[in-house]
Design a binder for these strands. Structure first.
Lengths: 219, 219, 219, 219
DNA sequence: TATGAATGAGAGTTCATTCAT
DNA sequence: TATGAATGAACTCTCATTCAT
């Protein structure tokens, strides 16, 4: 019966909605920040009416949280899972992790999330805490663990484990913020691949010493 | 004479006002972002009434710009001047620059500015461009120049000059954002001194090489 | 079907709104002037909320302009069209024009428009110019033309065509202003019919008795 | 002693103030209307500070009333006094009155007053009533009386005394409003002298040729 | 008497949210 | 489920008024 058919389509439509809405919302939130984002714009971008948003999300704040949550749940966890299983030398694992992050986050739409969370942390401590626990802490654990592994195996020098992980991650974050804040004023786009390569080169080999100076052995 | 005295106090009040207002505004803008900052709160924090703000700044956007401008003009330039004169090895100069930045910006109230600019770049391209030119480009030049000096003198290995400068700066920025966004969820405060030390250690020596493993020679 | 019915009502409401708003706004603007009119009052008079006004007009100034425009477009043009076709002696045409104006403007709600425009000309040169072109100039042309016709045919004496038209119109305007400004302090309402009759009597016959008809000895 | 001297000057200065303030206020009120006039502008135009206004007038409304009152008291009464004594034929008296009004009001700064009062009558019934009593009623009496004199003496035809006075005055008012509202859009300035001459010509002789002097056939 | 910095009530405007359809 | 007209709280900005000097 046609009823069934159309009902089916309805269902799928209804289930598809949130994704469209979240995508539209993400784009607006990233571009303007939470407060300056107008729900009317989000709706327009998603091709629905303002009222429709309220059929799926109780209010603006819930929509915002859903945007962040969905983005994290969908992607970060996945990436981490891949990483967790990863076997190999500490160096290999580190390179893998940073490369994955670059591909999955820095170069994707998803890069808006960190920017957004950083910007709105003051107004949404709840979101900031969530992000801190779900993303920051996990990344910290993952990297610290890898660094410790490397230090134990003699691959890496002895480092301050409480601070080194931040230094390792920093360039990735900077890349993301660059893209969202200053890219517009630069003549050419940031090449994330080279950016990462440069980071890894410095990270493993340091500035000093032509003596030890050869940065070719990067993946 | 008392007349002179009181007139003096009056004058000094009027002259001190802009600074008080900018300080209050900076704090609010950093904590909540531009849109979510209510001028009434800024006024209250500065100990004046709403209307008083308008005696000094034409509107909210102008106040915002003044906040950023004043902070930059007053401090960044100063720091840079000090740096510019600095003579010595490339390494010494680099250490000096990063240390100065940490002391003057990361550890001070001023750290709110970069956070603010990054968060509002989308809504204030004018401000973003200004910051990009006045701060980012200058820092880039300064560091690139130092890196080139070091590469020329043989102190440093050969590096990608278009990307290395960002990697060098990244941990400083991350430190600032950390302080403003996630510090609240951490048991202890980020120790900028150790953070910087760790960065410099990695920067100069790299992860690899127990052979070269000694991070003592930092200032 | 009831669906159709209600949708209809809805639509009709939405379509009728602008007119209701303009009517309310006209009344308030005429009574208090532009600046002293509060949009909240306009809204209340129209039976809607403040925000609703902004669904139809971008801001107060636009509402004001719409009020004037709508009133002019709807009525003055109509009246003029009727007049334009009118055939007959110059005297007949003049009587017709002034009578029409009295009926359509002086005695109607529309009389507020001239009052409003005169009062706000300083603040709304745009509106003043619009009115000057659309109403004043047209009326001037119409009347000058009629006067010339009468002078050519010998119906009228020779007159100063640059000034006479204003004298011809003046009493109509005064009637309108009287109604809006001083009526309240008078024991009885101005009888526009008699006012017009008196004007026409004087206009055609002059003060002086037919017997003594000689008007050369003016100072 | 110089003390006396300067005190003297002070006094005169103080007494002169109100006049300067009133002149400045009149100009602003006429140009913008009551509500849109900013006391700061009035002060600036008068060359004093905002606060000084309050040393002379309790508030904006009082200043407004003072402006109107002073203008009326100073000039209208004077003109009327001159008129009252005036002896001669009704025609002479009428011509004298209208000519005086044109010279003293229409062509002077004072012309702003009628415009102002008409515009603000709704917001200042008190002022409107004052003006109605002090100016309108007096003018009405003066003119009605003259018309009656003329009708009694046979100089004038029989007229409707309740309405004729308004028709007689109307062109003067229109001239004033023209000057303040539409003058700006005209290529040349209104010539009040010719305007009055045209009015008087029509008023005494009517439109119709002396030959055809018969005014019975009005609608 | 004169100033002008400061105030705060009030108005215009925006926009998240609701609800009849 | 979807709409979009309508709402009203909240915010920016203005300006008459006050007051210490």
């Amino acid at each position: 019966m046609s009823t069934r058919h159309s009902e089916h389509r309805w269902r799928r439509r209804a289930e598809a909605r949130p994704r469209e809405l979240l995508d539209a919302a993400l784009a607006e939130f990233v571009a303007r920040g939470y407060a300056a984002t107008r729900l009317e714009e989000v709706a327009r971008r998603a091709g629905v009416s303002k009222g429709t948003l309220y059929l799926y999300y109780a209010n603006k704040a819930e929509l915002f949280k859903a945007v962040v949550r969905q983005a994290l749940v969908a992607n970060f966890e996945q990436a981490e899972a891949a990483m967790a299983i990863r076997r190999g030398s500490a160096r290999e694992r580190l390179v893998f992790y940073l490369t994955e992050f670059t591909r999955r986050v820095s170069e994707s739409e998803l890069s808006g999330i960190p920017k957004l969370v950083l910007a709105e942390a003051g107004n949404f401590p709840e979101i900031a805490r969530f992000y801190h626990e779900e993303v920051v802490q996990r990344a910290r654990r993952m990297i610290q663990e890898t660094l410790l592994q490397g230090m134990a195996s003699g691959e890496f020098r002895s480092l301050d484990p409480d601070h080194a992980w931040r230094v390792v991650i920093a360039p990735l974050l900077l890349g993301i913020l660059w893209k969202h804040s200053f890219q517009a004023f630069e003549p050419e786009e940031l090449d994330f691949e080279r950016h990462l390569a440069c980071h890894l080169d410095l990270l493993f080999n340091g500035l000093a010493g032509p003596a030890s100076g050869h940065g070719k052995d990067l993946p």
